[in-house]
């Protein structure tokens, strides 16, 4: 397949994940609203927001880095997605996953976060910086169980290539990492709670004290980009988890079903629990999930 085709299909796949990611966001808003006894916005509200934000004519900028922040953010989201094979066995939905392995994806996640943190920093708003410091601190903590679980997988499948990890889980649902290496999956799923920043790990965007966190200063089309990224990046993470732990997907329907339920875990927990303080969440991640991760790594290294 030549490069032009590759890029073309990458765009298609990007479109799919954007739509699905935004839809999921809409669904989640609805669920939260219902849990809290509200009617909630329509499921397509995220799409409306993006269109609205992009068509606002006035926008303010605090400087070049501020301007580039959302670009970094969405580039991080898209890039992360681009390095993940979406559908197993499909040449069309493998994106640019041949660039590297799961380590590349794990580190590319930081690309957007870092850029966004810098942009938000130049905004000069203290809430942004506070939120970033909280987010980074929490990130260091949840990366530990996640990294341990990925290492456990590397030991289990003797590869870091996502495609090969998915390939190894084919055949029966019993071949899924979920069943072959449950401890690693539990550790990773807890880490995912932190990544998705719902309760109890929502201090980064803490709506009451530091309204919406890092993007505080962003408006108009900047906010539009950020909102789009929520869909793409969220989708990318879900696809990654699906590939690593839940056997991947061979078609779009399977993908939609699996990612939906993976996401719902965060949503259910988030709807049910109150919020941790930052230091508490750091301690939490470094205790039980890390212990689980270490046990699973040791199990596979012996």
């Amino acid at each position: 397949m030549n490069l032009a085709y590759k890029i073309f299909w990458a765009f298609i796949s990007l479109g799919v994940v954007t739509v699905w990611g935004l839809t999921l966001n809409g669904i989640v808003h609805k669920i939260f609203a219902r849990v809290q006894g509200r009617l909630g916005p329509p499921v397509w509200q995220p799409f409306l927001d993006i269109i609205k934000n992009n068509s606002i004519r006035t926008a303010i900028s605090h400087g070049v880095m501020f301007y580039l922040g959302p670009v970094f953010r969405i580039a991080g989201g898209i890039g992360t997605y681009m390095f993940i094979p979406v559908l197993f066995g499909s040449v069309y939905f493998s994106n640019f996953s041949m660039s590297g392995d799961v380590l590349l994806v794990m580190y590319f996640i930081f690309f957007g976060q870092l850029g966004m943190a810098l942009g938000a920093g130049e905004g000069g708003h203290p809430y942004s910086a506070i939120a970033v410091s909280r987010g980074l601190a929490q990130m260091t903590a949840f990366e530990v169980p996640f990294a341990l679980s990925v290492i456990s997988l590397a030991l289990q499948y003797k590869t870091l290539s996502i495609t090969e990890i998915v390939a190894a889980q084919q055949g029966s649902f019993l071949n899924w990492t979920l069943f072959t290496n449950p401890l690693a999956v539990i550790a990773a799923m807890i880490a995912m709670l932190g990544m998705n920043m719902y309760n109890p790990f929502s201090l980064v965007i803490a709506p009451q004290e530091i309204p919406i966190g890092p993007p505080t200063e962003y408006q108009a089309s900047f906010l539009g980009l950020l909102a789009t990224n929520r869909g793409i990046f969220g989708g990318a993470k879900l696809v990654l988890f699906m590939n690593l732990y839940f056997g991947g997907a061979t078609n779009l329907v399977e993908l939609i079903v699996k990612t939906f339920w993976i996401y719902m875990l965060s949503v259910f927990v988030g709807a049910a629990y109150p919020r941790f303080r930052t230091e508490d969440s750091i301690r939490f991640f470094l205790k039980y999930p890390t212990a689980l991760g270490i046990i699973s790594v040791l199990l596979f290294s012996l």
């Binding site: 970094f72 590297g100 392995d101 690309f111 590397a154 290539s161």
Partner: peptide, 19 residues
């Protein structure tokens, strides 16, 4: 014991593109 790959050049190109 371990398989993996890294194509720094392609990563750079993709990043440029998505940026």
């Amino acid at each position: 014991w371990l398989k993996g790959n890294w194509n720094g050049n392609l990563v750079m190109l993709v990043t440029m593109g998505v940026f």
